[in-house]
Computed example of a mutant assay.
Amino acid sequence: MLDAVIFDFDGIIVDTEPLHYKAFQEILVPLGLGYSWEEYLETYMGFDDRDAFREAFKVAGRSLSDTELKKMMEEKAEAFLRIVAGGVAPYPGVVELIRSISGNLPLALCSGALRSDIDPILTQLGLTDAFDTLVTADEVAASKPDPESYRVAVQRLQALYPGMIDASRGIAIEDTPAGIASATGAGLKVLAVTNSYPEERLSSAWRVVNSLAGIDLEGLRLLP
């Protein structure tokens, strides 16, 4: 039985990671804190913006005040919006899967991105009203792999659909080890997609697939 589905955003709905990387570098390189794409994939990709900046300063042995952090997050958000204004393509099959679930099963989005990063892209994809609730980095104190964001998503769905949702009968769709740990910690099963990491790095997930293309709501329900 499947009670609910919760999607990650970056790396599942759209491939915005190269765009986030570019936006981060616009802010960090002038400060002497830039890093390579490989370092981003290995260290920073699972963080939300707040913790990604903190980690960059920590690695460099430099302090970062809350005021400086807030300013850099705002500058990075502005840079990201400039970059995505040219349009972003979704991963194959994901828009169709979301539309097959929306209105037929409780559906949420749980992302380490800021709401201001997500909304313009959902609008571009025609998914503005597809989700029952969205949980973003603006709303939680701890980023993935901490389970807080997924716990909040489950709690919100449970409030919207009283008595209908058990976390153990929900599926999170993720692409990173940090995301898998977060969703698993909230009691969800995880369907991982190899959009960002090879299958062996996603082995802690319940199931791993190479693509969401061709999968609809009934396909999710029939996963072995």
Rank of each mutant, 00 (worst) to 15 (best):
R82S: 13
L69D: 00
G86S: 12
V140R: 01
I101P: 15
T43Q: 05
I118Y: 10
G61K: 12
G93R: 13
T43H: 05
F9E: 13
A137R: 00
A159F: 00
Y44V: 06
R99M: 11
S63R: 13
D216G: 08
E218S: 14
I6M: 12
E200V: 02
V193Y: 13
D119E: 15
Y21N: 08
C110F: 08
L223K: 03
K70P: 00
A137T: 01
E174P: 12
V140Y: 01
S36C: 06
V88H: 06
S149R: 02
D166P: 02
E218L: 14
Y197Q: 13
V29G: 10
I83N: 15
D66W: 12
V209I: 11
I118P: 10
V154N: 03
G87P: 02
S203R: 10
T128I: 09
L127N: 13
T136S: 06
Y35Q: 05
Y91C: 12
A186P: 07
R62W: 06
F24W: 04
L134Y: 03
L202Y: 03
L202V: 03
R207P: 00
A205Y: 08
G61C: 09
Y150K: 07
A181Q: 13
L222G: 09
L69Y: 01
T16C: 11
G34H: 11
V208N: 05
V208H: 06
Y150G: 03
E55C: 02
A142F: 07
E218C: 10
V95G: 06
F57V: 09
D10V: 07
V59F: 12
A142E: 07
T128N: 08
I13W: 03
R207T: 02
G87Q: 03
Q124W: 07
T176P: 09
A213H: 14
W206E: 01
T67P: 05
P90T: 11
G46T: 03
